[in-house]
Amino acid sequence: MPDTGILPHLDLAPVKRRRGEALGAWLLTLPAVISFVILLLLPTLAAIVMAFSDFELGVWPPAWIGLENFTELLGDRGFRQSFANTVIYVGLVAPASVGLGLAFALLIEAGTRGRAFFRAVFFLPVVSLTVAMASAWQYLLHPTIGPLNTLLRSLGVAGPAWLSSSDTVLISLAAIGVWENAGFNMVLFMAGLTAIPRELREAAAVDGARSAWSRFRLVTWPLLGPTTLFVVTITLIRSIRVFDTVAVLTRGGPNRASETLLYTMYTEGFTFLRLGYSAAITLVFLAIVLVLMLLQTRVLDKRVHYG
């Protein structure tokens, strides 16, 4: 502030104003800050602390047991199975639903007719009550009365017991997961596609890219890079969270063949009330999510940046 001594009251105004602004800002953010601390920050920290304790509901006080929960996790066959199931499930759902989402988006954007209609059709699972639709899937996949196996029977094939055989249960759940996620990914890809200037595709055509495929390779795919990376990350995170279909359709069965991370965490915590152990699983889950996000930002900074 210039110390000229002239009209000092003019110099004071901004100070007063700034103080008022800061006060107002704090008042405006206060409700959010309080609820953030109580409902988000403290519980997260508490979950971390719990993971290092033997906290069980009804047993007080809990003891500090260091890394014991995590070493138990390592040796726990149930958890290892659950972890492996989650990896397989994600490995099936993510590529398929990303690929299908992109295919839907490209097919819809390729022409003018039927756009709104098909977009709505593919998007429907996103706004559908998962629990209810899981029941519909259960009927569809029912070993004896389900339409799918009835159809297979009429073709002379004996269909498996999709959801109650340990061989097919993960594949069946993954199919439902793909069905749920593809429309969501489609919408994200469509947003990404509209961000690509039409002139670029036209320039590619004039420059000699004759086939739709060569235009896709030259323009669409590279420019969709950031969108694709984002869609892949978000799909990975969404599919790691798989819970509803497992809880409704299989309860992790048969014989833990479909137990996944969040479901294991839920049963350990809320069925067996081993909160410390359950918190440790939560931290594993959190760590995976954080690593995925970190990878995304790294790749985004490095590769898909056009300056």
Binding site: E199, V206, P222, L223, Y306
Partner: peptide, 21 residues
Amino acid sequence: AHPAERDVAMVFQSYALYPHL
């Protein structure tokens, strides 16, 4: 004919340069 088969070249108003190349 397809644009690619016309032996034309075009400078677009927005230049339409491929940003990733």
